[in-house]
Design a protein around this nucleic acid. Structure first.
Lengths: 102, 102
DNA sequence: AAAACATATTGACATTTATCTATACAATGC
DNA sequence: GCATTGTATAGATAAATGTCAATATGTTTT
């Protein structure tokens, strides 16, 4: 996975309000109006955060009439976990030249 | 874990150059000068990114003489994984009132 | 001690981001 | 059709962030 995509995924978890939103979605699908009641931001700001969360694919939105329902995407979460796993697993196969020997 | 700490952890993965640095560290411990050769930024910029990576606890630095060696922290990585797991696991116990019924 | 070297810090600057108000868009209900 | 309601977009602004040049700090070498 390229660096741009990786950064995009983890942007979901880089803002305190987005983390609060994700925590609320752990409880199940919620519509924007319900999130708005619990997060202390204006409606356009919430909308902005929901866009970033959806772009990261951690959250998915579902339109139904005039409401939009958001929930945590299992697929997106698995992608993030896999991405984190790969990024942080030591690569013991590739050689690694030591440097700066005294 | 509070939102501030969580955001701090995942900031490590929110910048393309930091992701490149982490990928390099997958190959093993490297000193700053070696990272500098491979990442296209100036020395102060690298130093800035290393600070953020260390603050996130994903990376640890070790001073030896005039060199600083950086490596991926297994402990920090486990913390990040656990944090991600908790954040994204559905909470089926808590009740969740539905909203916006038609 | 002075020079050389590796890294960190400071200060400036441009870009990005989070936030708000105002407005647009889309669906529902009258 | 028109008012109401839920959400998105546009535009403005302040704060945060990534970057660099210059400089400071600390270590090693001569």
């Amino acid at each position: 996975m390229d660096e741009k995509k990786t950064a995009m995924i983890f942007k979901a978890f880089c803002d305190e309000n987005r983390i609060r939103i994700i925590k609320l979605l752990r409880l199940g699908e919620k519509c924007a109006c319900q999130l708005l009641e619990e997060i202390n931001v204006t409606q356009p700001t919430l909308s902005h955060h929901m866009k970033i969360l959806c772009d990261s694919e951690i959250v998915v939105g579902r339109k139904e009439g005039k409401w939009t329902y958001y929930s945590i995407s299992e697929k997106g979460v698995e992608q993030a976990k896999e991405c984190l796993r790969i990024l942080t697993t030591l690569d013991v196969v590739s050689e690694n030249k030591s440097c700066c020997e005294k």
